[in-house]
Design a protein around this nucleic acid. Structure first.
Ligand SMILES: [Mn+2]
Ligand SMILES: [Mn+2]
Ligand SMILES: [Zn+2]
Ligand SMILES: [Zn+2]
Lengths: 152, 152
DNA sequence: ATTCTAACTGAAAATGAGTTTCAGTTAGAC
DNA sequence: GTCTAACTGAAACTCATTTTCAGTTAGAAT
């Protein structure tokens, strides 16, 4: 079994979860396939691979994987939640086109320990993680709307 | 009519929208009531006030207000979209308790023009706005889980 | 290895946020 | 005032996600 899947299994165990077939399939899928997938997309992809898994289990176990910190849930305002594997030591955020929904990831986050500590002191919260979404218009959609303006 | 509603009306007109009763009710509601409300909550609150408006119109016009930039849509991962009025010159983000869902707003964002410009150059996007969510555990939920651990 | 059972699975039904439809109404241009 | 494209709201619909429940399984205990 893949090294990452093995480590993830240990994390599940530590939280009192068994390693079941659906969980293994999800972990393998994320570690070889991808980012920003919806529950339905993961399900469809696994079905196409000929794997046996129920859509209910996909939803249920995505929730488990998010809870133990192996997967991150993100909202891109496109009608469903999307998921991506958490890679230790890696940190990125997303640039989203408000017109077409295209998603680009980027590095170089400006959220720092200083701000986190200030928030903890001022609010009593214990800060755990953060998500940043930058919205804009992609190159293609900019041209698109420029063309339309000229034509009208 | 309230000054802010009047200004907002001008924005709507500029974008080719009429000022209808539902739109006026929504604007008035946001400018005197609040932040982080779901469509259903705005609807319920207006009904309790004895106002006549359909839930369909609430959804439809929240979309319009977001499109013209008078209202912001945010996802707090609690099952529905939430909305808050955009106040020019004001800029804040949110600290969310992963346990109980409590939302605290904070100022002092570290997203800067420099990062925005770097993204624009590297991706060709035109950056418009951004949202930052910081997740953690609130004071109450920290105690809660400490107590539970001791009791078990 | 066999037994045991709490955790787990998946099909089907239910839920609920949000959207679409459509017949009637209205803002506001002329 | 007249006219009509934009708008409204009730009802029907969509579809992501959750719940239910009868049957299965991981893995702890013996
Ligand atoms: Mn990503
Ligand atoms: Mn806010
Ligand atoms: Zn960051
Ligand atoms: Zn900011």
């Amino acid at each position: 079994m893949d090294q990452r899947v093995l480590q993830a299994t240990a994390v599940l165990r530590r939280h009192g979860y068994k390693l079941t077939k659906p969980r293994r399939l999800l972990l393998e899928w994320f570690y070889r396939r991808g980012e920003h997938a919806s529950a339905q997309e993961v399900f469809d992809s696994l079905c196409r691979q000929g794997q046996e898994i129920g859509l209910t289990s996909v939803y249920r176990n995505l929730e488990v994987l998010v809870k133990v910190g192996l997967v991150r849930q993100i909202c891109f305002h496109d009608g469903c939640h999307r998921y991506e594997p958490v890679a230790p030591g890696e940190h990125h955020h997303h640039l989203i086109c408000s017109d077409c929904g295209q998603i680009i990831k980027f590095h170089g986050c400006t959220f720092d320990r200083e701000l986190a500590e200030r928030l903890e002191q001022e609010t009593g919260f214990m800060v755990n993680c953060h998500q940043l979404q930058v919205f804009g218009t992609c190159k293609f959609c900019q041209q698109e709307s420029a063309t339309k303006r000229r034509t009208v």
